[in-house]
C-alpha cells in the first residue's frame, strides 16, 4: 500500500493516476454514507470520509481497518490532510479530526511509501 496525503485540491488523485498508471474507473471514493470498504480498489480516495462513516456507526476506524487489511493493503490510499485549522468548536468534529490524524499515522506506518503532494508535486516522506 502507498499512502498519498496533502491538502485539499493539491492534485493527489492526478498524482496517483499518473504514478500508478491507473484510470478513473480504478478509484473507489469513500463517503460518509458508505460504511463498508470494498475489496480490490486500485485507489481508495477520501479515506477521511471512511473515518467519518466509522465514527457515525460507532466503530473505531483503526480497528476496522486493521481487521480488513486485505481490502486495502494492495491499494493506493489517499487522505486529505485536515490537520492545520483551528480546533473545531463541535465535539463531534474534534473527534473526527483526531480520528483522521490517528488513522493517517496508522496507514503511514503500514504503507511501503508515503507521499505528500504539494501544489501537484509529490515528495516522498517514506
Amino acid at each position: 500500500m502507498v499512502l498519498i496525503t496533502g491538502g485539499a485540491y493539491q492534485g493527489k488523485v492526478d498524482y496517483a493516476l499518473e504514478k500508478f498508471n491507473l484510470s478513473r474507473k480504478d478509484i473507489y471514493t469513500c463517503s460518509r454514507d458508505k460504511v463498508e470498504l470494498p475489496e480490490g480498489a486500485g485507489i481508495i480516495n477520501n479515506v477521511e470520509e471512511l473515518v467519518r462513516a466509522c465514527l457515525d456507526n460507532g466503530r473505531d476506524p483503526l480497528k476496522y481497518l486493521a481487521a480488513r487489511k486485505s481490502r486495502w493493503n494492495k491499494s493506493v490510499m489517499i487522505v486529505n490532510d485536515i490537520s492545520c485549522g483551528l480546533v473545531p468548536m463541535d465535539a463531534e468534529d474534534r473527534a473526527y479530526r483526531e480520528a483522521v490524524g490517528r488513522t493517517t499515522i496508522y496507514l503511514a506506518t503500514e504503507a511501503l511509501a508515503v507521499v505528500r503532494v504539494f501544489a501537484g508535486i509529490g515528495k516522498r516522506l517514506k
Binding site: 496533502g6 491538502g7 485539499a8 485540491y9 493539491q10 492534485g11 486529505n80 490532510d81 485536515i82 490537520s83 492545520c84 485549522g85 483551528l86 473545531p88 479530526r97 483522521v100 504539494f118 501544489a119 501537484g120 508535486i121
Partner: peptide, 29 residues
C-alpha cells in the same frame, strides 16, 4: 497554503480555495 484546515466552507469560499489551487499548481509546474 490554505488547504489543510479541514473546514467545510460555503460555496464561494470553497470556489476561491479551489481557484487558488489551480493557480498554485500551474505555477508549481
Amino acid at each position: 497554503f490554505i488547504y489543510s484546515d479541514g473546514v467545510e466552507y460555503d460555496e464561494l469560499t470553497d470556489a476561491y480555495i479551489q481557484g487558488l489551487a489551480i493557480i498554485d499548481r500551474a505555477l508549481a509546474k
